[in-house]
Design a protein around this nucleic acid. Structure first.
Length: 583
RNA sequence: CGGGGUGUGGCGCAGUCUGGUAGCGCAUCGGCUUUGGGUGCCGAGGGCCGGAGGUUCGAAUCCUCUCGCCCCGACCA
């Protein structure tokens, strides 16, 4: 591509609303332009990157035996009523009416459509297992779109849906998808990590998320410093903690704590570490109030709480509502001793010797509270978020660390939720009707582009991994009015193109400084200077975008050198990944 | 959805409080200059000041409504 005739509208300054690195750089490098909240046009260079990701995903899905289809983006409400999701899905679902006022939605996902296809086309166990995928634009009307492409409303997604006869078959398919995803992210040159995820209310047996590790990631993931254990924060567990607490021969005592409500305040006032306090949280689940107990220095995990209480979700009531539920108690003094509410305590409290907590009396706390002596042992469950340095639940030696990640892939055993609701059956070898079980597997194709930038950039711009770069090489034509420079640049351009290497030729009649700045911004892995100082000695200058000293090579050797350097860069990228992923 | 902010040429902003008919930088176009890190100088084009209504002799500026966009909130009692 020639810069002079392309549309690559780079910007010195991005619009104010862009805050995250990838959003700013995508706008500045001329990859995308916004059209509305959370919706973007992909400009020529941006689209090249998107297509590279798409090609890698497609190749690996095909290699894993999945079959590509393309389903409608617009789906009839009828189908969603059948699965029960029309009323359940909420405002994220963009609902539209056609000219006959019939209801449709713009698909945020395609379980219904694929399951409908399956019930029409799948008749026999001989057709199974089968796995369909598509790469398609989705629309989810996010509460708050942000971070540009990262959390847009419209986005490009690869989604796949598998059908197996039984759980053993699904296991095989699931593992194949796990392996395919690993290859996809490796080939993209990204530092990533597969982590265990909560299966939530759908209740499947397995779920993994694939996260690109980046400081700006929206999600927290926990991983063991020794073994392979890794899970997202919703799911991550800890091995039992060592017992802490004050000696238990102290009697329980009522202490006046006027105006001291927060754990921090009470801890300072009573001169006790926060870990020796118990945090008492009133929550509501399916209209029933519960008292949840946590160690003072621990945080409640709402997903775990919902799982432990066997409900879809738990709510934190407003302070006024809490007062109603506790007989007029202001928040801060609620406690487990003498409460009428059912109690569920976090596991970390199981071994607590004695603790301080609210006294169910305004401006008072209890100290030296001891299980059995002062109150019966409640039910225990894992309710908290793990913290850095918690012991690993898998191995004896490991400790957990927390990192930020961007979720770019998710694989999930669905079970028979949709195949049952839409009545998919196939005949088994005995001629009996059976309901296949499903898995679903998503990749945020457009999100990968943003995630790659979050992970690979410097102050001057993007640094593309070779596999995703819109062009592997950018040629800077030093001076378009100098015939020798032009000839060198054109020869390189033709040569690289003939070798199948993507190349951007900056042939604009502009100052070199401008070209340098734009080249850094756009971030092609290699930059070649045609003309200038080097050419006076019959050489071109090659610069690796990642850094290092520029290399001077004779013009005649330039093509071979560039090809070899690219191969080396691509190789380094995938080697780096192996050390990241461990497993 | 709740709270806050903001809307002035393509981008970044000033002007709004204290009403008098719109300005700066970048970008664009023309000319000269410069030519290894966003050159310098001269000149030009481009804005019904988000929209509607109102107050006023007069509204970017004041009032009402409306739309867009951005930020914060949905654990720490």
């Amino acid at each position: 591509m020639r810069f002079s005739v392309a549309l690559i509208p780079t910007l010195k300054e991005p619009p104010v609303e862009a805050h995250t690195v990838s959003h700013r750089l995508m706008l500045r490098a001329g990859l995308i332009r916004p059209l509305g909240s959370g919706i973007y046009t992909w400009l020529p260079v941006g689209l090249k990157i998107l297509r590279k990701v798409e090609a890698i995903v497609r190749q690996e899905m095909d290699a894993a035996g999945a079959l590509e289809v393309l389903m409608p983006a617009v789906q009839p409400a009828e189908l969603w009523r059948e699965s029960g999701r029309w009323d359940f899905y909420g405002k994220e679902l963009l609902r539209i009416l056609d000219r006959h006022e019939r209801e449709f939605c713009f698909g945020p996902t395609h379980e219904e459509v694929i399951t409908d296809l399956a019930r029409r086309e799948l008749k026999s166990y001989r057709q199974l297992p089968i796995n369909f995928y598509q790469i398609q634009t989705k629309f989810r009307d996010e509460i708050r779109p942000r971070f540009g492409i990262m959390r847009g409303r419209e986005f490009l997604m690869k989604d796949a849906y598998s059908f197996d006869m039984d759980a053993e078959g699904l296991d095989v398919t699931y593992r194949a998808m796990h392996a395919a995803y690993t290859r996809i992210f490796q080939r993209c040159g990204l530092g990533f990590r597969p982590v265990e995820a909560d299966t939530g209310s759908i209740g499947g047996s397995s779920s993994h998320e694939f996260h690109v590790l980046a400081a700006s990631g929206e999600d927290l993931i926990a991983s063991c410093t020794v073994c392979d254990y890794a899970a997202n924060l919703e799911k991550a567990a800890s091995a039992p903690l060592v017992a802490i607490g004050t000696p238990s021969d102290e009697p329980m005592r009522l202490v006046a704590t006027p105006g001291k409500k927060s754990i921090q305040e009470v801890s300072a006032f009573l001169n006790l570490p926060e870990s020796h306090l118990v945090k008492c949280l009133v929550v509501e689940a399916n209209g029933r109030a519960h008292l949840l107990l946590l160690r003072g220095d621990h945080e409640l995990n709402l997903v775990k709480a919902a799982n432990a209480l066997g409900v879809g979700a738990v709510q934190i009531p407003e302070p006024g509502r809490i007062a109603e539920l506790t007989g007029g108690l202001p928040v801060g003094y609620v406690g487990p001793v003498g409460t009428a509410l059912p109690i569920l305590a976090d596991r970390a409290l199981e071994s607590c010797l004695a603790f301080a907590c609210g006294a169910n009396q305004i401006d008072h706390h209890l100290t030296g509270v001891t299980w059995e002596r002062d109150l019966p042992r409640p039910a225990f469950a894992d309710l908290r978020n793990v913290q850095p340095d918690d012991p690993c639940p898998r191995c004896a030696a490991g400790r957990l660390r927390l990192d930020r990640g961007i979720e770019v892939g998710h694989i999930f055993k669905l079970g028979d939720k949709y195949s049952k609701a839409l009545n998919v059956t196939v005949l088994d070898p005995e001629g009996k009707e059976r309901t296949p079980i499903m898995g679903c597997y998503g990749i945020g194709v457009s999100r990968i582009v943003a995630a790659a930038i979050e992970q690979n950039h410097d102050d001057n711009g993007i640094i593309w991994p070779v596999a995703l770069a819109p062009f592997e090489v950018e040629i800077l034509l030093a001076n378009p009015n100098d015939p020798a420079s032009v000839q060198t640049a054109e020869t390189l351009y033709a040569g690289l193109t003939a070798m199948g290497i993507g190349v951007l030729l900056d042939d604009r009649d502009d100052r070199l400084g401008v070209k340098f700045k734009d080249a850094d911004l756009i971030g092609c892995p290699l930059r070649v200077m045609a003309g200038g100082r080097a050419l006076k000695e019959g050489k071109v200058e090659i610069q690796i975008r990642k850094g290092g000293d520029p290399l001077q090579v004779p013009v005649a050797e330039a093509l071979v050198t560039l090809r070899d350097m690219l191969a080396k860069l691509a190789g380094e990228a995938s080697k780096g990944i192996e050390t990241w992923t461990k497993s």
